[in-house]
Amino acid sequence: MGYGFLFNIDACIGCQACAAACAKKNDFFLGFRRVQKYELKYRGKNVVFYYSNSCNHCENPECLRRCPERLYFKRRDGIVIHKMGECRACLTCLKACPYQAPKFNHQIGKVSKCNLCVDETGDPLQPKCVKACPTFALQLVHEDYYQPMAQYYHLPIDTIGKSHITQPSIKIIIPPELQKNGEN
């Protein structure tokens, strides 16, 4: 596989710095990352947590399979790229992606998505969202293999529930109060 994200639910304070950094990098009108607040009752306790989500650069990207124009590709380092220039905005990928990662840019009439900031110069790869996170809740990792997300299915995060097919390149650290069967 390759690059992916590591997200620590406990460390995220919901400051939206990652989303703002992404939006800034993409000229303020097209941020690919969003932070959502979840409130739920889990094992008799009220739990509040935040989850930051963008393209997960999946092992089985639905956008890649469904795009009729063949504009998506997955690089050897695992990053899924969309060739925006040739996009005719059929929006098939928007509907196909369970994480709502591709976004429609109304100003240019094309779809675009997170590319892990590979267009930024500099070495090593440092996505803006990861750089902006003040609590290091969001980190970039490089793994050979990302575990299937079955261990996170009990969390009421919509996008996680649909991850069994696409196998996103993301690892989540779950706080003790949200752990399944009392273990990680």
């Binding site: 890649l64 063949r70 998506y72 590709f73 997955k74 690089r75 050897r76």
Partner: peptide, 9 residues
């Protein structure tokens, strides 16, 4: 793998 991930333009 390049072929299977459409990584050859």
């Amino acid at each position: 793998q390049d072929l299977l991930f459409n990584n050859i333009l």
